[in-house]
């Protein structure tokens, strides 16, 4: 059973109201939600607030989630993006009232959703973590160190063909994750 099948089980149990599935979803994706929020809001405390809002909101709104049409992670990231946008707007309001500044001086961030590129990076980092070794190590050698597949094979004492197929499978999975959950499209 691949990770996707396991995720689908969690998603279905979540939709059905199984509280243990909520805990499992939290275990699996709270870090992702938190990271996306922290990258956008620049504050771990605000990211904590967003994470709470997202999981409480997701549980209460689970009737609106269809596990056969969307991944639970995708749905949670979608809720997170709304919550992050709200947090940005709340900050602007806060600035306006607290400092009583002329509204013209307050720069409305306008966006609110995390920058798409930042979201993509967080998603890719998360998926890379899910890959497991040796795929993850192989791709990191290629990404961070710019090694060719034959250098990687030598480095890890692995057959060329094995490295190649890990590169292909790993990249395909990362691409799929960006396609499904990513912001830039």
């Amino acid at each position: 059973m691949g990770p996707d099948a396991a995720d689908l089980d969690v998603a279905r149990a979540f939709r059905a109201g199984d509280e243990a599935a909520l805990a499992e979803a939290y275990r699996r994706w709270a870090g992702l939600v938190h990271t996306v929020a922290r990258r956008s809001l620049g504050s771990a405390a605000d990211a904590d607030d967003v994470t709470q809002v997202v999981f409480v909101g997701a549980w209460r709104g689970r009737s609106g989630f269809d596990p056969d049409r969307a991944r639970l992670s995708t749905w949670l990231v979608g809720i997170a993006r709304h919550a992050i946008a709200d947090a940005h707007r709340a900050r602007v309001r806060h600035l306006r009232t607290e400092r009583a500044l002329a509204t013209s001086l307050v720069t409305d961030p306008g966006e609110g959703a995390p920058a798409d590129a930042a979201l993509d990076r967080v998603l890719l980092a998360d998926e890379l973590d899910q890959l497991g070794d040796p795929g993850r190590t192989i791709l990191r050698l290629a990404f961070d160190h710019g090694l060719t597949h034959s250098q990687i094979a030598a480095e890890l004492a692995m057959p060329l063909g094995t490295v190649k197929s890990h590169v292909r499978r790993g990249l395909a999975r990362l691409r799929e994750r960006l396609e499904v959950d990513g912001g830039a499209r």
Partner: peptide
């Protein structure tokens, strides 16, 4: 981009 972890207070 390193994954971060919510504080225990969140759960």
């Amino acid at each position: 981009d390193q994954p971060s972890v919510p504080s225990p207070a969140v759960w």
